[in-house]
């Protein structure tokens, strides 16, 4: 069997047939910033944080198939600036007040901001009015912090088989909805063990009474940057999938 190869920032990276660029990168220990991507789920391609240049063209690394001879640019100043701007867009379209957020320190949006040395959100804030759903006795949905990544949608549909969540609306009015007559979580069959409750990269889906349990200094991204954490966590998942192929 001949080995397939592409390069990322000049480094030769092997890949297997059917892998996306981000999977090849992760398996090789190269971090490509991402938010809506999680190797456990079907690629989605909406946040655009994983934008890389493939043979000179911008592509989403999480959905674009790896191919022989691709020259991929990833960790360049230009791309990281683009990613920073996209991260800033995600901050200003929602309501992110980190100091009062239970997810702070363990939040991927925040961690990506740190990784990209984002010091402010740059744009005027939209300060949208979004609904908080505290109806369920164990699970909390704070849409102010939702980045519309649809990980909960995918997890609930593909893993839990429950279809508790969906995206609704259009354009800047897009929002997460709950699949029940009242639109409330309490009227769904969601349970705290569901995958959907554990995949939110930000503090939009939270388990009640678990906030601020880990002291500052010991939270996920206090010591390590998201690049390290992500590779540590995702490399085994990608490798396992590779063997399954």
């Amino acid at each position: 069997m001949t080995e397939h190869m592409l390069t990322i920032d000049g480094q030769r990276i092997p890949f297997t047939e059917g892998q996306t660029i981000i999977e090849a990168a992760t398996a090789a220990g190269v971090y490509i910033p991402h938010l809506c991507h999680n190797p456990e789920f079907k690629p989605h391609g909406s946040c655009k944080l994983c934008t890389v240049k493939v043979n000179g063209r911008n592509c989403s690394a999480c959905t674009f198939p790896a191919a022989d001879g691709q020259e991929v640019l990833n960790n360049t100043q230009e791309l990281n600036e683009t990613r920073r701007t996209i991260t800033q867009m995600l901050f200003i379209e929602g309501n992110h007040f980190c100091p009062s957020c239970e997810k702070s320190g363990n939040c991927q949006l925040q961690a990506v901001g740190y990784y990209l040395n984002m010091l402010d959100a740059h744009f005027p804030f939209f300060y949208p009015s979004r609904e908080v759903d505290a109806s369920h006795h164990e699970v909390m949905l704070d849409r102010d912090r939702c980045i519309l990544c649809e990980l909960c949608v995918r997890a609930s549909r593909d893993v839990d088989g429950k279809n508790v969540f969906a995206l609704s609306g259009r354009g800047i009015n897009s929002h997460l909805i709950v699949n029940s007559t009242t639109g409330k979580l309490k009227d769904t069959d969601i349970s705290v063990d569901d995958k959907a409750v554990h995949v939110c990269p930000v503090g939009a889906i939270l388990i009640k009474r678990k906030g601020f349990e880990v002291p500052i200094g010991e939270r996920i991204y206090d010591g390590q940057d998201i690049g390290q954490v992500s590779l540590e966590h995702e490399m085994p998942i990608v490798e396992e999938a590779e063997h399954g192929r």
Binding site: G45, S46, C47, K48, L49, I86, M89, L90, I92, E93, F123, P124, F126, L148, L167, G169, R170, G171, I172, N173, S174
Partner: peptide, 21 residues
């Protein structure tokens, strides 16, 4: 464009509104 953006991806969803403003 801001009115017609489907809202799927960040740059268009947020960016078209920013451009409009």
């Amino acid at each position: 464009f801001a009115h017609e953006s489907c809202g799927f991806c960040t740059p268009c969803r947020v960016g078209t509104s920013l451009l409009k403003n």
